[in-house]
Nucleic acid binder design. Structure first.
Length: 523
RNA sequence: GAGGCUGUAGCUCAGUCGGUAGAGCAUCGGACUUUUAAUCCGUUGGUCCUGGGUUCGAGUCCCAGCAGCCUCACCA
């Protein structure tokens, strides 16, 4: 067979000593042909100039009439499946070149758009000499449009047999490894656009996020809730226990904080007669970063006048089921090492009962709780009994909750925004929804007694620093309550965690397109 | 904030006992009108994260730093 040495500009045959030959650069490869990052780019820029030389714009233009590849595939499924059948309808597709296989004057391309992937076949004879010059300029990652008959190749692969080519956009960067894609977690998040192109299931997960958010809105609006927008810049951050981000308004010369919750402004709207309201938006907490925490995340809070926390349990189930359906989540699956089952109704278990069950202590007896807490290494001296109980619950019970399970009836002292049970004032009408040991939702029968609310804002629990408490005085909010807030149920759902759950993602960074990152020194 | 692991070519990864830096993909050149991560022949490509130290000699050992991941703490 013909040896490459026949075509080599360097001395033919010559006993093949590797060390001697490579001194002379091949005439066909300019600049001696190194393949550092910059020369990989140069190879692409050379092709870009070649396209310009053909009178084509390497950045393309409007390209009408392309059919989504997913739809093309549906048509293809109905066609004659016999090999080399190319008699299907003429279609136009546009997308990114993911794979490029050349077999001499025959080229196969895997083209991808938002709906799918399809093979394009280009024959030198079939497309003609002018179009073939464009084929010579193609690289992995370029965006191209094709016209051609739909059919099946010799091996049965659905194929567009191209007759026309429209160059749409040059890619100047080398794409990631075509088989492994982008693996490095850091690069995947910093260059999410590449992750979306090459990552297995990445785009599907973010599409699922959109569907989930749509479903949440659908359930609420269908029940007569109005979507509103509260202020993200606030004088003081209330409604949750977290440190806020601080900023400053220049013209007003006043310090401001970014909101940490949506609660207090939505309740003002209940006072204002907006009896069913919700907000779906970003909140900011200046706390640690972890697989379950990002400094900015998306919260949905909903408030319904004349409801209570049981109303909110029903609402929560409706939202979860609709969202699961929208995301295509199976009824039963594995997440974070737990087997979860979405079949309604979700289990409901009392806080104290779970505590007794898991730790064996007597939740009604502070001494018994303190002893169990001490056994877990929890500090008890000088701390409020309910704070100790809460720490014990988190240390022991939370991780056992596969769920979904509504944990109901919380110790009142750690719930300063919640109505107390009429017949048991030490118990708050609150639930948290747990799945796989992770809190996904939190709801109250809302406290609407302005005098009690003011007292709870003033009372700092022993063992809790000011900034660790959600009891933060807000006199304007108290005044609003004094005008009369209807009895109500309120619900908060962490949307990112909901998406994690319904897509079985192990990290919150998998469901946030651009999670927080330290800057890289490079670039 | 503490500990563990990791950082090598554009991407994915090897690198033994401390002795001149390796592979696949990508690039470039060549063969091929039915490929499927095409294949085959050839070619090219390195701030071994950064800075010190030990050593005749460091990708490798030591120290410090930077970044990422994980666990814990924090985030009720």
């Amino acid at each position: 067979m013909s040896q490459p040495t026949e075509h080599s500009p360097v001395a033919p045959s010559a006993a093949h000593h590797d060390g001697t030959a490579p001194a002379a650069p091949a005439p066909g490869s300019p600049a001696g042909g190194s393949t550092t990052k910059s020369t990989l780019e140069k190879a692409r820029r050379d092709k870009l100039e070649k396209l310009r030389g053909l009178g084509l714009d390497p950045w393309g233009k409007r390209y009408d009439g392309a059919t989504p590849i997913g739809q093309v595939r549906e048509v293809g499924e109905t066609l004659d499946k016999s090999p080399e059948f190319s008699g299907g309808p003429t279609v136009r597709v546009a997308g990114r070149i993911m794979l490029l296989r050349s077999a001499g004057s025959l080229v196969f391309i895997d083209l991808v758009d938002r709906t799918g992937r399809i093979q394009i076949m280009l024959g030198k004879k079939q497309v003609g000499p002018d179009a073939w010059k464009i084929i010579d300029c193609l690289d992995l990652g370029d965006l191209v449009g094709f016209d051609g008959r739909l059919g099946h190749s010799k091996t049965g692969e659905m194929t567009v047999f191209a007759s026309g080519v429209e160059f749409l956009t040059k890619s100047l960067e080398t794409p990631p490894d075509k088989f492994h894609g982008l693996v490095d977690a850091d690069l995947r998040q910093r260059m999410r656009y590449l992750d979306l192109i090459h990552g297995e299931g990445v785009r599907d997960r973010f599409v699922a996020r959109c569907r989930i958010v749509e479903a949440v809105r659908r359930v609420l609006t269908s029940r007569g809730y109005l979507e509103v927008e509260g202020p993200t810049l606030q004088e003081s951050a209330g409604g949750a226990a977290a440190r806020p981000f601080k900023t400053h308004h220049n013209a007003l010369d006043m310090p401001l904080v970014l909101r940490i919750a949506l609660e207090l402004h939505l309740k003002r709207l209940l006072v204002g007669g907006m009896e069913r309201v919700f907000e779906l938006g970003r909140v900011y907490r200046n706390e640690g970063v972890s697989p379950r925490h990002n400094p900015e995340f998306t919260m949905m809070e909903a408030y319904e006048a004349y409801g209570d926390y049981f109303t909110m349990m029903d609402l929560t189930e409706a939202i979860f089921l609709e969202a699961a359906q929208a995301a295509g989540t199976p009824t039963r699956f594995e997440w974070m090492g737990h087997t979860v089952d979405l079949t309604p109704p979700f289990r409901r278990a009392k806080y104290d009962d779970l505590l007794a069950e898991v730790t064996g202590c007597n939740p009604a007896d502070p001494a018994s709780v303190a002893a169990a807490a001490a056994a877990q290494g929890i500090e008890t001296a000088g701390r409020h009994a309910d704070v100790i109980k809460s720490d014990l619950f988190e240390a022991t019970v939370e991780k056992t909750l596969s769920g979904p399970v509504f944990v109901i009836d919380y110790p009142a002292a750690i719930c300063p925004l919640t109505k107390r049970k009429a017949d048991a004032p030490h118990v708050a009408e609150r639930f948290e929804l747990y799945v796989a040991g992770i809190e996904l939702a939190n709801a109250y029968t809302e406290l609407n007694d302005p005098d009690l609310q003011e007292e709870l804002f003033r009372t700092q629990l022993a063992g809790l620093a000011q900034e660790e408490s959600m009891a933060r005085m807000d006199t304007d909010f108290i005044r609003a309550l004094r005008h009369g807030m209807p009895p109500a149920g309120g619900l908060g759902i962490g949307i990112d965690r909901l998406v994690m759950f319904l897509t079985a993602a192990p990290s919150i960074r998998d469901v946030i397109l651009f999670p927080i990152h330290r800057p890289h020194a490079e670039s």
